[in-house]
Design a protein around this nucleic acid. Structure first.
Lengths: 187, 187
DNA sequence: GTTTTATATTATACTTGTTGAATATTACTT
DNA sequence: AAGTAATATTCAACAAGTATAATATAAAAC
């Protein structure tokens, strides 16, 4: 249900259209939760059905008409309730779901050379992703400055720091794995 | 499609029933891919339909009848093809999907005390998970020894090492985050 | 002036994963 | 003798995510 709660969280900052939410989601939450445009619109409709949101149609002459969503009292309550029961998500956070690791598990069926190439490619992506986080930090401090809410920005920063730790761990793991495989080739 | 490929990988080691696959999956692959029993049976049926597997019914008098699945030539080809095109999964591995991080992102809506509690709970789970990996290492070296396939066991070990790196990273990140929040309280 | 970009939403089919229970047999435990 | 665990599979309903493309308007770029 996390997409719904992510949308609730964003709408709690202010009313938005599906289009704006899609962009806001992709600009902020997409680092740890990905969603397609069509899914966002579908969930918004479902959330309105649940009474968490209301919407008003806004007729525009210059642009296509739009629908602005606003969080309701029920929606705010739901957000608060969700935020105060993190147990399940903490447990889930201990679980990895990675097709890449499944490949590693079965990589013994391929050549050591092929496995090494895969690990080098992974290592490289970790580096790139880590570098790419710089932009996220800039965006956060900038937005935090504009909004003037340093406290909120601190949590955004902490979430972004996770990315750094995650990619750094991937990098170190890949180096260790590469060493183990090179050992094998050297023999 | 990774569940299918995980099952193919296991069946490549030898023919098995759905029941045995379910246990084998949960004993080995479940660290990085979780699947329910009912899903495994459903995928097996689909894979047979795709021609990746064949099955034979085995009538037992002592126990309920069973269906033994065997990988076909097509299935082995599919496994090989999959193993030799890791690009997509490497990219996916850069993506986090974590409801927990979404909570962190929105934690500014709750009290610092509540956020700290959440982070402490997360930290504790990381510790427990890291400790729990000891069993996985034992199982791998034991199984590797029995099967006598040191090369395969090396990849299993590498996959398990990822868990270690992942939980360690989570631990360090949590410590950093806790420090940042304590700073806030101290002021 | 025609293509591209941005705005804004909707539709539909499909695949994957979750939940939970029903069914049936034998062995082991108390 | 009754209850629980282990073996073994199936089913049905649902929830969530993926893939893709159709539709429509206006501004901006070339």
């Amino acid at each position: 249900m996390s997409l719904k709660h992510g949308l609730l969280g964003l709408l709690n900052y202010g009313s938005m259209t599906g289009y704006e939410l899609d962009k806001a989601f992709k600009a902020s939450l997409s680092f740890f939760w990905q969603a397609k445009t069509s899914q966002i619109y579908r969930e918004l409709a479902a959330m309105e059905g649940q009474g968490w949101l209301t919407s008003q149609r806004v007729i525009q002459s210059e642009k296509p008409n739009k629908r602005v969503y606003t969080i309701t009292k029920d929606g705010k309550e739901e957000l608060t309730t969700w935020l105060s029961s993190p147990e399940g998500d903490i447990k889930d956070a201990m679980g990895v779901r990675s097709a890449f690791l499944m490949r590693v598990f079965f990589a013994g069926e391929t050549s050591t050379k092929q496995s090494l190439e895969m690990l080098y490619a992974y290592r490289q992506k970790c580096l790139e992703s880590k570098t790419g986080l710089g932009g996220a930090y800039d965006a956060i401090s900038e937005y935090g400055g504009i909004v003037g809410d340093e406290r909120k920005a601190k949590y955004w920063q902490i979430a972004a720091l996770y990315g750094d730790a995650f990619f750094e761990a991937g990098l170190n793991w890949a180096d260790k794995a590469i060493d183990l495989l090179k050992e094998e080739m050297g023999e």
